[in-house]
């Protein structure tokens, strides 16, 4: 079943920053010249790199555009944005997966176990609050497990979100073994016949071996309690982070086999280009994007809607 209803308007407005700064510039660029030339491509390079697309991915996009300009004899600058839209759409397509993402709960698996991981300060707990709210609104019984036992007041923070979402939270005292909390949460969810369990974990830098080992242990313990769990490992990424994002995706995937990504803080940043870098270099689907601070500001990531939203001219621009 598909839990998240798509509110396209919100999706679009959340991406307004990315669209205005990144693609607004492309529009300007296109208007400034009449033919596609080296200088224009160099400016395009600047626009892409400045949006955190990354050097490697930018080169792939530019090379493809150059080849097509040559082979298909494009000349007029207005065709540049068409070409760019094509290339970006293709990059995201190569990423595979269904056109609309989000989480689909198979009917046969109860409880469905979601483990949430990420580095410090990316918005894991907030994302869990929003996820729980979404599941709850869809009429599902949700349990959240407070397995961030390291950070001061992490429990309190999650508790407030749990209350807002109207779901139950399982916790132990600060400093407790996070794997034990995860185990307890899952046991409790099974006993209560919950539909979904979301396990929060402490933020950790992907370079800390001992902390990554701790994460592996949490995952092992979940699998022990319920073979096959966790069914989804969500890695939360901060959209304002630069190329280190790729490193985070790689390291967390090596440790706990990440199955989906959540990109937060997309409303505040002028970027979002990192989505392209992820698609180009790694094959993990983006499940959700966070576009605001409200509890319903977590949106399923829709590749087509994303590309369209980026290229649609904003209200302030003349058509």
């Amino acid at each position: 079943m598909m839990v998240f209803s798509e509110t396209l308007q919100k999706f679009k407005s959340g991406l307004a920053k990315t669209r205005d700064s990144l693609f607004g510039k492309v529009t300007q660029l296109v208007r400034s010249k009449s033919v596609i030339d080296e200088e224009m491509l160099e400016r395009l390079e600047e626009i892409l790199i400045s949006a955190d697309v990354g050097v490697g991915t930018t080169m792939v996009i530019l090379d493809n555009i150059k080849n097509r300009v040559k082979q298909e004899r494009y000349e007029s600058s207005e065709q540049l944005s068409v070409l760019l839209k094509d290339e970006i759409g293709r990059l995201l397509q190569a990423n595979g997966g269904a056109p609309a993402n989000g989480i689909r709960l198979p009917d046969s698996v109860r409880p469905y176990v979601v483990m949430v991981v990420g580095v410090n300060g990316v918005g894991k707990t907030t994302t869990i609050g929003k996820l729980a709210h979404n599941f709850r609104s869809a009429g599902l019984k949700v349990v959240v497990g407070a397995a961030d036992t390291f950070r001061a007041a992490a429990n309190e923070q999650l508790e407030i979100w749990a209350q807002r979402a109207g779901v139950e939270m399982i916790q132990q005292s600060r400093g407790a073994d996070p794997a034990a909390v995860a185990f307890d949460s899952l046991s409790s969810a099974i006993a209560k016949q919950a539909d979904v369990v979301i396990i929060d974990t402490a933020g950790r830098l992907h370079t800390k071996i001992n902390l990554m080992d701790e994460l592996k242990k949490i995952k092992r313990v979940l699998d022990k309690r319920m073979p096959g769990a966790p069914h989804e490992v969500l890695l939360v990424l901060d959209a304002t982070t630069g190329q280190n994002t790729l490193q985070q995706v790689r390291q967390f995937t090596t440790a706990v086999e990440v199955t989906g990504l959540v990109l937060t803080k997309l409303d505040g940043t002028a970027k979002g280009g990192v989505v392209l870098a992820i698609s180009n270099e790694l094959k993990i689907p983006v499940r959700f994007i966070g576009v605001g601070e409200q509890i319903d500001d977590l949106q399923p990531f829709d590749r087509r809607a994303f590309v369209n939203a980026l290229f649609e001219s904003s209200p302030t621009e003349s058509p």
Binding site: T240, T241, G242, T269, K271
Partner: peptide, 12 residues
């Protein structure tokens, strides 16, 4: 500021 911040660091 987070040292991992990308291109937007200058704007922020």
């Amino acid at each position: 500021v987070d040292a991992m911040t990308g291109q937007d660091a200058v704007n922020t």
